[in-house]
Design a protein around this nucleic acid. Structure first.
Lengths: 240, 240
DNA sequence: CGTCACTTTGAAAGCTTTCAATAGGAGTGG
DNA sequence: CCACTCCTATTGAAAGCTTTCAAAGTGACG
């Protein structure tokens, strides 16, 4: 069945015969950004679209009084500044050293439009982003601090798996602003997971996931997983 | 400048000369759903795409232990089941009496593909959804209960404005599951807003927005708006 | 080796939730 | 037309999870 979804596409790696969205950036010179540097600011006129070659970026939105939310992290192979309007809706900053390629937005969409092959790719990309966004809404709206942190660890694992080790290049504060928590709560939760042998933290943001099954149950809020957790067993029952 | 964004398009109403995504549904027979009825379930094979003619729908995701999050409400003129994968990622239910038209997903995308005119419309639609999702992440991650409720009231106002009156067709529980709160907290917040003369509730979900300016400041977390609110004044300052 | 920023840890406070009970409204049946 | 029932909304009080405020610990860097 015809489907607009990258996640159902063939596994990564292997032959690159079929075109990819990233190909649109071919020939562009890579640019480097240092940790903390902004690639663009919320409110800037959205003239460019970026392809991330190396590093990790954060997408931030800020309230007038300074509260910050990170609406996503971007890893190599992903695109930035794509799915939005005439002005950027968030600030993009480098979490660690970053290399990106850019092309003008007009050119990007011109290329997309003249190629019936890549157009579905763009739509697929947007669909994947949308689905991640909805998962995040569930996380932010209904998960406990521990569930959020574990969900995050597993998500990072999915994005950048090296066996059962992951690297968290961002600060606790970044994680907190992404998970709707405070840095202290994230720190406490990580400590707790360590003490229980579920994870093991290494230096420089390294984390070893010890018990994937248990972590998975915590992340998805398995009814039996937690003991002293908010009991929110509320069934949504609707009339027949 | 060329832009993929509906929100920058010409004002609604007026001439319908240019094609619209909804046109793809022309000729389809409308179907009716009663309150609480599901149009499709999370996990169902995603075979259809829907155009909402009348009523309001909710998109729900549920955790294994029953906790529910509503990832969005859908109003007339919007589409449903669009931006997703081979299986629906949420359950769609009627909040009130609903009329929809449907077409097979395959057919929808075939039509989109053969028309270079509507393809940008689809992308624009996805971009708008994405931008709303990011606003919601900011709301869920960083706003107080009152800010969430007020943001919601103003968002409903934007979607379905009748002067300064709005109608909330959904229950307090629906609102709560959308805002990451409980029904009690939503109720208490509404009562508080009433007592302060910011809104006025009428029967059957009617709400009159009294002081739009004040409400706007509350929703956006204006630094001066609230008095006894969490003081989260944390500036995101990055090195130059 | 001192500085600076980030992380961790502790203790108290707070906002929202939970639990419980009282209204309120709509629809039904007598 | 009114009584009755059911479900939702509202309100109260106590509990809890996360936050806030503070301070100590850790690591990178010059």
């Amino acid at each position: 069945m015809f489907m607009y979804s990258q996640s159902t596409a063939s596994p990564a790696g292997g032959a690159t015969a079929r075109p990819k969205l990233k190909d649109l950036f071919d020939g562009q010179r890579p640019e480097a950004f240092s940790p903390g540097e902004a690639i663009f600011w919320e409110g800037d006129e959205a003239r460019q679209i970026f392809d991330v070659l190396e590093g990790v970026l954060r997408m931030c939105k800020v309230l007038p009084d300074g509260r910050r939310a990170i609406v996503g992290f971007i890893y190599p192979g992903e695109m930035l500044g794509l799915s939005f309007h005439d002005h950027y809706l968030f600030t993009a900053e480098a979490v660690i050293d970053v290399k990106v390629r850019r092309i003008p937005r007009v050119r990007f969409f011109a290329l997309v439009n003249e190629s019936p092959v890549v157009q579905p790719l763009l739509i697929a990309h947007l669909c994947d982003e949308m689905s991640a966004a909805q998962d995040q809404m569930l996380l932010l709206g209904r998960k406990s601090a521990e569930e959020r942190v574990v969900s995050f660890l597993l998500a990072v694992h999915r994005k950048s798996a090296i066996d059962d080790h992951i690297v968290l290049p961002m600060s606790r504060l970044d994680m907190a602003d992404y998970l709707g928590l405070t840095a202290e709560t994230v720190s406490r939760t990580m400590t707790s997971l360590c003490r229980r042998g579920l994870i093991r933290t290494v230096r420089r943001g390294g984390v070893a996931l010890r018990k994937r099954a248990a972590l998975g149950e915590i992340a998805d809020g398995a009814a039996e997983a937690a003991v002293s957790r908010r009991a929110l067993v509320r069934r949504a029952v609707w009339p027949d």
